[in-house]
Design a protein around this nucleic acid. Sequence first.
DNA 1: GCAAAAGTGTTACAGGTACACCCATGT
DNA 2: ACATGGGTGTACCTGTAACACTTTTGC
Lengths: 241, 241
Amino acid sequence: MNGVGHGQHALLTVDLVVLTVRDDQLQVVLIERGKDPFRGRLALPGGFVRSNEDIDEAAVRELAEEAGLDGRQLHLEQLRTYATPGRDPRGRVASVAYLALAPDLPIPVAGTDARNARWAPIDSVIDRPNALAFDHDRILADGVERARAKLEYTTLATAFCLPTFTISDLRRVYEVVWSTTIDARNFHRKVVNAENFLTPTGGKRASEVGRPAALYRAGGATVLYPPMLRSSAAHAGDVAG
Amino acid sequence: MNGVGHGQHALLTVDLVVLTVRDDQLQVVLIERGKDPFRGRLALPGGFVRSNEDIDEAAVRELAEEAGLDGRQLHLEQLRTYATPGRDPRGRVASVAYLALAPDLPIPVAGTDARNARWAPIDSVIDRPNALAFDHDRILADGVERARAKLEYTTLATAFCLPTFTISDLRRVYEVVWSTTIDARNFHRKVVNAENFLTPTGGKRASEVGRPAALYRAGGATVLYPPMLRSSAAHAGDVAG
DNA sequence: GCAAAAGTGTTACAGGTACACCCATGT
DNA sequence: ACATGGGTGTACCTGTAACACTTTTGC
């Protein structure tokens, strides 16, 4: 942080990877851009950070304005920053990406900007080059990978569930996010035994068929111990080298 | 990313959390600031991103200029971005923090800016409010926590070792970074059996005393399976809520 | 031989996998 | 009664913790 005067000004934006599990698919909020650049193309919701606004606040504000979602009720964490020169034709733009995990909520489409927002299955965009504007393909891929990884050793899967949920709901989250199947019986035992993962509400929910399932709330734990390991994982996230 | 014209310009900097294991302590590169603000205070190395320079490049450049280290030989990954208004008295400054992990290398102190750089034990600064300039206490704490967490489920511990190392060297990394003791015998078996964690070189290294130890190089794996779990961990990293 | 560090064997236990089986509901 | 999903029991296996014991060096 030496060298006053060498500073390079940049525009500061936030972009949001908002994920949910919906219709047995992992889905993401996309907007259709109403302005250039990339007018009419699909993109992640986001926008410029305002003067004297913290970037976390900006993420919450954009979540409300562009996706109609209340950031205070969602899991929201910073993902990483994308600032490669040329990533935005308008000039030097540094985008701080955030990852939000939400239960299956409808997107309110009242008079706000959210009218252009919709849920889209990630399979319809991921690994399809240039499906999204800017470098949002990359940002989305990074967000999805972060979510997949964090399900292993944190209690974050509950962020995809409504305030009360059944163990099957939770299992479906893991199955959909990881694209695997999990033995329902072993999963049940494991999550109820994990320390402070789940708190029983005492209630039950009857579905159309079968025995009613006990309802739970998220417990206080943030780390999941023992972890829920995907047998053999992949990847990592280096950078310069 | 809608709303052209509402853009808020910010200065873009990179700051570096460079960690090593040295003298059985976790240490970090600190510099003494030569200019205001915070002249004379300790801080993380870093500086302004240049025009048309990628932030990853800027991190590698500052690592060389301010710490005299070659970023291409180190593990370097983006940590997170700090852009709270008021964090820098010069105005709106967004700092993209990077985490670098290095073996115990001397800092060259030739005519460069690195003459102000030194290794400092993290215990001498962490949890001491305002030991560092700006919000660098927080950035350092986040970097240390990231490093501690990643040793669990990645092969990153080898980034703290020289190109060839013994299993004791590797064990000391875990012990120092986690401030624990680990049974040498069980650790040996575990890391040797972990898939592609270590590659034997065939060589041996004799120390002053005791049986010479076999030498290893880092294997190809980036994820560590099975993971090396700290029995019961702590923390997590949320943000707005 | 002795001290010290490297490395192997062994036993007991915790947690995971696979799957048989019972439970509670709707039709 | 039967289909369906919820939930328990159990046997087997993998991996961990604890620690006795052997190996290879320097002195």
